[in-house]
C-alpha cells in the first residue's frame, strides 16, 4: 500500500495563478468593507466566499450540540437516564441538559424503558407532536427489542415509530447511553434536515383522521 503525502514544500509555494486570484479576492474583500462593491461583482464575491459552506457546518454543529431531550422515562432505564443528567456523567457537557417536558419544544425522545401495549399509542402520539427535525433513541433492551420480557404485554419501539439509535443494555450504563447520544450527534452533524419520512422510507405511514362513517382512511 503506498502512501501519498502532499509534500510540505509543494504546499508552501503557490503558483502564479493562485497568487493573482488571491490578490483579486483580497481587493474585492476590501471593496466590500468599504461599501464599494456592488451589483454583479458583489454577488460574485458572496457566491465565492467561504462563508456559506461554513455556515452550514456551523448550523449542523450547533444543532448537534444543542439537543433538547424530552423527559420520557418509562421504567428502570429512566433511572439511568436521570443519572446521566447527574453530575458524574454529565449530559450538560454535550449541551443536552435542557430537558423539556413538552414534546412541542424538544427534538429528541429517549424511550427509556419498556413500552407496554397500553402505552404504545401514547408514545406514538407524543412522537407525532414533536416538530421536525426530530430524533428518537431507543434506550435499553426493552424498547429496542423485547428485552428481558418476551411476552404479550410489551411491544418493541420499532413496530410503531422510527428509531435512530438503539442502545442495548438492561439498563445500559450511563456511559453507554452517552455513547449512543454522541453517535446521534454525529448523525445530526452529517445531515440534520432531511425529514424522517425520507430517512426511513416511511412514506405512506401518515395518519389521517377517519372518514365520516368511522372507517379509517
Amino acid at each position: 500500500m503506498e502512501v501519498i503525502r502532499s509534500g510540505g514544500a509543494q504546499a508552501a509555494t503557490l503558483s502564479e495563478a493562485d497568487k493573482v486570484a488571491f490578490r483579486a479576492r483580497q481587493s474585492r474583500a476590501r471593496d466590500l468593507l468599504r461599501g464599494e462593491l456592488e451589483g454583479e461583482e458583489l454577488e460574485q464575491h458572496v457566491r465565492d466566499s467561504v462563508i456559506t459552506t461554513t455556515l452550514d457546518k456551523a448550523t449542523k454543529w450547533a444543532q448537534g450540540n444543542s439537543i433538547f431531550p424530552l423527559t420520557f422515562g418509562l421504567a428502570c432505564c429512566s433511572i439511568e437516564m436521570m443519572s446521566l443528567v447527574g453530575a458524574r456523567m454529565d449530559i450538560s457537557r454535550f449541551g443536552g441538559e435542557a430537558m423539556r417536558g413538552t414534546p412541542r419544544q424538544s427534538d429528541l425522545i429517549i424511550l427509556a424503558g419498556r413500552v407496554s401495549m397500553k402505552m404504545a399509542p401514547v408514545v406514538r402520539r407524543v412522537y407525532d407532536q414533536m416538530l421536525e427535525p426530530k430524533y428518537a433513541i431507543a434506550m435499553g433492551a426493552c424498547s429496542s427489542s423485547m428485552g428481558v420480557f418476551n411476552n404479550y404485554a410489551i411491544v418493541p419501539a420499532d413496530k410503531f415509530m422510527p428509531v435512530d439509535v438503539h442502545i442495548p443494555g438492561c439498563p445500559p450504563r450511563p456511559e453507554a447511553v452517552m455513547y449512543g447520544i454522541l453517535k446521534l450527534r454525529k448523525m445530526i452533524q452529517d445531515d440534520p434536515t432531511m425529514g424522517w419520512r425520507d430517512r426511513y422510507k416511511a412514506h405512506g405511514t401518515e395518519e389521517l383522521p377517519p372518514a365520516e362513517d368511522g372507517a379509517r382512511a
Binding site: M117, S145, M146, F149, N150, N151, Y152, P156
Partner: peptide, 21 residues
Amino acid sequence: MPEDYIGHPQRRDFPIGGEPV
C-alpha cells in the same frame, strides 16, 4: 391491560405471546 383487551392473560392456558427472535 387496555380496557378493550380480550382475554385473561395470567390464566395458565393463555399463551405467553411475544415476538420471535
